[in-house]
């Protein structure tokens, strides 16, 4: 399958119809979740209505982190197999990933004020997530500089792999250290969130993920098109 997508034409044949499906389906699924989370679910026994921020904050956190995983995987594929679309994928994920990481921090801050009583604290979870956001910015700058200098993308790829170390730190920060942020509420074995409150989260998570994929696809298409223009101009210049 990887080799089938290596050809940009083949990739575009799939990407073109897929893009609007991902975007609109994503928006629709998210809308269902938001409707449920704002209108249908009960408030939390302790924090009341502010618990509804969960339906936004959790997806942005997962996608902020998941986006970096995508960059890491693409970087490995690029370094090992030299797949031409791999570095395009990594660069396409960078900005959406950074945006979602920033949204995670902002929605978390908004959630923290009425619940914890503070907009920000330097605890393990918040600090490591902020670090991930900075690493995203560094990656964006690095990838752009590498591309402008005619680099082959190897340096950003190595950076993309190295940054992965932040992901388990973020995930386990609430387990390893005393933190202000509470512990894991969703895991492979179950959830500590009552089902009456939990269900819209599946919808907003699914919707946000599809939307994210649609945005990445648009950015990949833009990069592929730019590559083709550059190649054509180079040939014409000869």
């Amino acid at each position: 399958m990887l080799h089938a997508l290596a050809n940009p034409t083949r990739f575009l044949k799939i990407a073109r119809p897929l893009t609007p499906i991902l975007l609109w389906l994503g928006v629709a699924l998210f809308a269902v979740g938001a409707w449920g989370g704002l209108m249908r679910t009960p408030p939390d026994y302790l924090q009341g209505e502010t618990v509804r921020i969960m339906y936004i904050h959790v997806p942005t956190a997962w996608l902020g982190m998941g986006g970096w995983s995508g960059i890491a995987i693409s970087s490995i594929v690029f370094l090992v197999w030299r797949h031409p679309l791999a570095s395009v994928a990594a660069r396409a994920i960078a900005v959406p990933g950074a945006v979602f990481a920033a949204l995670c921090l902002v929605t978390g801050s908004i959630w923290g004020r009425p619940t914890w009583g503070t907009w920000w604290q330097w605890d393990g979870r918040l600090t490591s997530m902020l670090l991930l956001f900075f690493v995203y910015l560094a990656y964006i700058a690095l990838a752009r500089a590498d591309h402008d200098r005619g680099g082959d993308g190897r340096i950003p790829a190595i950076f993309g792999i190295a940054g992965t170390v932040l992901l388990p730190i973020i995930r386990y920060s609430v387990t390893w250290w005393n933190t202000l942020h509470q512990g894991q509420s969703i895991g492979l074995t179950g959830s500590t969130i009552d089902s009456a409150i939990l269900w819209p989260l599946f919808w907003t998570l699914a919707g946000a993920s599809l939307f994210f994929a649609g945005v990445v696809l648009m950015r990949m298409r833009a990069l592929v098109a730019a590559q083709r223009v550059e190649a054509r101009l180079r040939r014409l210049a000869v």
């Binding site: 975007l23 938001a34 704002l38 209505e49 502010t50 509804r52 921020i53 936004i56 904050h57 942005t60 900005v95 959406p96 945006v99 920033a102 949204l103 902002v106 929605t107 908004i110 959630w111 004020r113 009425p114 939307f211 649609g214 945005v215 648009m218």
Partner: peptide, 17 residues
């Protein structure tokens, strides 16, 4: 606070898209 969180997110997502 809920409105602020949803508002910021939807705006950012729209601008990004």
């Amino acid at each position: 606070f809920v409105a602020a969180a949803y508002g910021v997110t939807l705006t950012a997502a729209a601008v990004l898209a």
